[in-house]
């Protein structure tokens, strides 16, 4: 299915305290990573309603990433635990709808992990490229 020269569009919801700062650090350290990510800053990974994920996919994102603080480090104590539980359910939900759950990823990136952020984005972008464009986008039911 993979189109030649396909550049995926990835929506990343990053938590303000860790992942967003981590992304910032990756930038200020001049690390190279693919420019396929549109970042949306949220206060906590626990803010992400699974609905955001499905809406993003429906409105044309090829992949959705959630970045949060490491377990135990959430600034609101338990936001990322909830995020993790919801992510598990979201994956099952996506799968039972016939959407490849690999289009969605939850990662822990701390404020000091600029290199990890770059790595995550590189890897995720590669994976989405392999998966090809999101079939939902075309409203594709053949």
């Amino acid at each position: 299915m993979s189109d030649k020269g396909f550049e995926p569009r990835i929506v990343a919801f990053l938590c303000n305290w860790c992942s967003y700062t981590g992304a910032d650090l990756a930038g200020t350290s001049r690390l190279k990573y693919p420019a396929n990510v549109r970042t949306i800053r949220v206060m906590c990974s626990g803010r992400i309603d699974p609905l955001f994920i499905i809406s993003a996919l429906q409105k044309g994102a090829d992949g959705v990433l959630i970045g949060g603080c490491h377990i135990g480090d959430c600034h609101y104590q338990k936001g990322n635990y909830s995020a993790r539980r919801r992510a598990a359910i979201t994956e099952t939900m996506l799968e039972s709808l016939g959407i490849d759950p690999r289009r969605f990823r939850l990662e822990w990136v701390s404020a000091s992990e600029g290199p990890k952020y770059a790595e995550v984005i590189t890897d995720f972008t590669r994976q989405i490229k392999e998966l090809g464009p999101n079939p939902l986008k075309k409203g594709a039911a053949k």
């Binding site: 699974p50 609905l51 939900m93």
Partner: peptide, 16 residues
Amino acid sequence: VEYPTFHFVQRYHHAA
């Protein structure tokens, strides 16, 4: 809104 958001909401809200 079209499938799947509409139905996703309805189902997800009853997940557990």
